[in-house]
Design a protein around this nucleic acid. Structure first.
Lengths: 215, 215
DNA sequence: ATTAAAATTTAGGCAAAACTAAAAATTAAT
DNA sequence: ATTAATTTTTAGTTTTGCCTAAATTTTAAT
């Protein structure tokens, strides 16, 4: 698989988690910052290789092969992110772009040894689960902070948006994985929350609350 | 720089250490397993970018820019090799191909943090020096085992040939960096050496002796 | 100093992955 | 049920890096 093919497979994987009934050409083009016509070309090629099942005008989904490939790419990406944060002391907002490159390095031995070196981590620095060697992903029940019940103790286990901007905002607010949350009040007008975060009361917009996973 | 451009620059660098008066088109083609005509194409492009100075039919050499780029690629390659051996427990004969991929990852922060994580190593697992952040390479005086004086104590500080085959042979013979050598006898007919290696007497062919650096 | 051999370059093409513009199919709206 | 809007595909180009074959230049040999 070329790097480009891998990027398509990965994007189709992520999109199919959100819309399981078939991924749109335009959606793929949007994620990859390319044109729909380029996507069509590639879908034909991936279909030839039995990585996706594709019918003109009907969207696309991953085959079994494609799904496993996608999970392996995600596994690499997330393991490298752990490495960058845990071993090289990068901040969690700095690792995505580098991992985007590292995920394409081709060596099973490398990734399995890296996994062992890191102590077989189950989650990446943003709380996303890391598929194991077989592609199995540990299922975690989590909910968004925006869906949390009032006056109940939660702790932060992940972010939905892992853009640098959002992560930097969280740093500034001293919110990290493991932070404890208790929603004190929900303003029904705009869904703003008053939350006790690590015993400090803070106002959290709905947009923020919609991008924090808690448990 | 593209990966392909980087590979050309790296190969020109290595060849120019051996033949400093200008590197041949054919030599580059040989190293990259490509055709001379492809090399000519690329040399024009690299020349445009001021990475090499090139005159038709007259061979090529690196410009100041090209030299620094080459050293940075070599730096990355060797630091990743150290990582693979020291941290991920790869054997020294297994790391070259993986490092060939890793050396193209583009991030100064990454490589400098990796350098720090590894404790600023001066040499890679094959005894080759690692250029520092500025591209400066520590000079070491070394000689080939084939040039060693009789009955004098040396120790192994590097290999000239770092092919997997040669390295595996050395493993089998229990020769590693740090092994001590004392040449007992030189057979003038074929330059075979009788050498005391770590206090064990062994017969070493000229070919082997020509690929071991000692000090 | 010619000539032969070797090395290098030019010319013309190909495949991958992108693009633009136009055509076709699907979906949504009246 | 048509029409309009949107989405998707096709057709034709471009760029990068490679190729083969032919032409050119350099080097080596007589």
């Amino acid at each position: 698989m070329t790097t480009s093919e891998e990027n398509y497979i990965k994007v189709i994987y992520h999109l199919s988690l959100v819309s399981p009934k078939g991924v749109n050409t335009n959606a793929i083009a949007g994620m990859l910052e390319t044109k729909a016509s380029s996507v069509t070309d590639m879908l034909k090629k991936l279909s030839e290789k039995d990585l996706v099942s594709y019918q003109k005008y009907q969207g696309v989904s991953l085959t079994e092969n494609g799904l496993l490939s996608a999970k392996m790419i995600v596994r690499k990406h997330r393991l490298w992110e752990v490495f960058l944060v845990e071993k090289l002391a990068f901040n969690w907002d700095e690792v995505h772009e580098i991992a985007e490159e590292l995920e394409h390095i081709k060596s099973e031995a490398l990734i399995n040894k890296l996994d062992a070196f890191l102590g077989f981590p189950a989650f990446d620095p943003h709380g996303d689960p890391i598929p194991n060697e077989k592609g199995v992903i540990q299922k975690v029940n989590k909910l968004l902070l925006s869906e949390a019940e009032l006056n109940k103790e939660y702790y932060c286990i992940g972010v939905k948006d892992s853009s640098s901007e959002f992560l930097k905002y969280l740093d500034k607010q001293k919110i990290a994985l493991g932070s404890t949350f208790k929603v004190i009040e929900r303003e029904s007008f705009d869904d703003t929350l008053t939350v006790e975060i690590n015993a400090q009361e803070k106002i959290i917009s709905n947009k923020i609350a919609n991008n924090l996973y808690v448990q």
